[in-house]
Design a binder for these strands. Sequence first.
DNA 1: TGGCGTCTGTGCGTTATCGCACAACGGTAT
DNA 2: ATACCGTTGTGCGATAACGCACAGACGCCA
Lengths: 251, 251
Amino acid sequence: MKTANIPTSESPADNHLLAALPPDDYGRIKPHLESVSLTLGEVLYESGDRMTHVFFPTTAIISLLYIMENGNTAEIGIAGNNGLIGVALFMGGNTTSNRAVVQSAGRAFRMKPEALREEFKRGGVFQDILLRYTQSLMTQISQTAVCNRLHTVEQQLCRWLLINHDQLPADTLVMTHDLVANMLGVRREGVTLAAGHLQDLGYIKYSRGTVNILDRAGLDAVCCECYQVVADEYDRLLGAYIRKNLVRKGC
Amino acid sequence: MKTANIPTSESPADNHLLAALPPDDYGRIKPHLESVSLTLGEVLYESGDRMTHVFFPTTAIISLLYIMENGNTAEIGIAGNNGLIGVALFMGGNTTSNRAVVQSAGRAFRMKPEALREEFKRGGVFQDILLRYTQSLMTQISQTAVCNRLHTVEQQLCRWLLINHDQLPADTLVMTHDLVANMLGVRREGVTLAAGHLQDLGYIKYSRGTVNILDRAGLDAVCCECYQVVADEYDRLLGAYIRKNLVRKGC
DNA sequence: TGGCGTCTGTGCGTTATCGCACAACGGTAT
DNA sequence: ATACCGTTGTGCGATAACGCACAGACGCCA
């Protein structure tokens, strides 16, 4: 079980993508990074907005939400310390059709579009990492599509819990059933039912807006394959970069 | 209503992305393009395969399918003459977790990965177009996720028909209910029911593996917003390129 | 300590889709 | 002409999720 381990000071290297950069690239990029604090529910950008920054989360978790015309919402992707928010800034669109909302409060580093694009155009490791991350995000979105079509609410809840747990230092998630329902695009009651079942099984324990993960293996067993597929693809695309760097730093 | 207008000879410019290239880029790329014929059901690459080419369809339509462990399938994206197949080749992964299967027989131009990457690295218009297309593909996949979650089989069928109709020269689609069911990730009977209803409404007419689109406006009315969102986003990202070029060519 | 607002539990009828089974139809081939 | 096979139509019961309504439980604040 993980234990809370909030660092007193924050480094860009707490974000896995930044940590994977070679010293040269890292040194060039670091001056352009600005540390910011993100609060629960904060909207980083709205559907159609011109983005002002790209964000590299360190302790925060950001959800990409799609909002239907009738107000219904569904999460299509998520990024924590293993990713970034704002791919449209280097992909060319400058805006996306999603809302990016802070799903777990914490910190992130942000970078201006001009600096990002300038570095992207160099065509080196930074570009490669950004593009590979984008591809892994596509896998995540694809898997969300498949999961929505073919799996039960309970399985999807497991997947959601596992993904979030991966990016948090401790075993406690701050979330109400209502919030999760909006993420998964299902009814609040459906989440209550599924969460109640997982609690009966002893895998989680929750109360009024906080959830404790008690048994990850249990959640894994209930969960559909979708969680692992996305995790594996991320590792395939970016694992080499990230591991090489950990070795270099002696971890 | 469209009428069949099969060209006797085929040009790379029949693919909108290639047509959008400036003369210089087009001239450099053209020698690397090889015209190929694709038959219904042909698999361009399998999940996990190392891709051998990128494909720019002209008259063919290609589906990106996800195959579950239990054999269930669901379409997560589609590309015809307005797109390409094989984004992983320039995004960095070289493989994807999808199967690409020919969904409507026709022709395409293919290009070897080395030539593609070399041109991509130049960082000019070609790169920009490929990245913008990739972003529009992400929108398409996102919308599939949302649509799977929130809309009825009938609405999704409409969306599927409209998307395919867009990329065909005539009003006739070759497809059985069973095939569509596999694409949408639903039961064959569900498709029969939905298609029967659309036929009762006079919007389509079908029989034993072919569907005629009789009333596009009708389909549009039944369809969810998802179709238009994706179309608009494609236009926003790539419309300027494509229109500028049409003007230049005097269309 | 009491009150209030938020979060969670639960019940009930409705709807969409599923899984299965089988009948009917229509080309194509022999 | 007939047999066959792929395609489509239809009818079940089962299940998952929906929409709504309201009760209970907890935590915070006055």
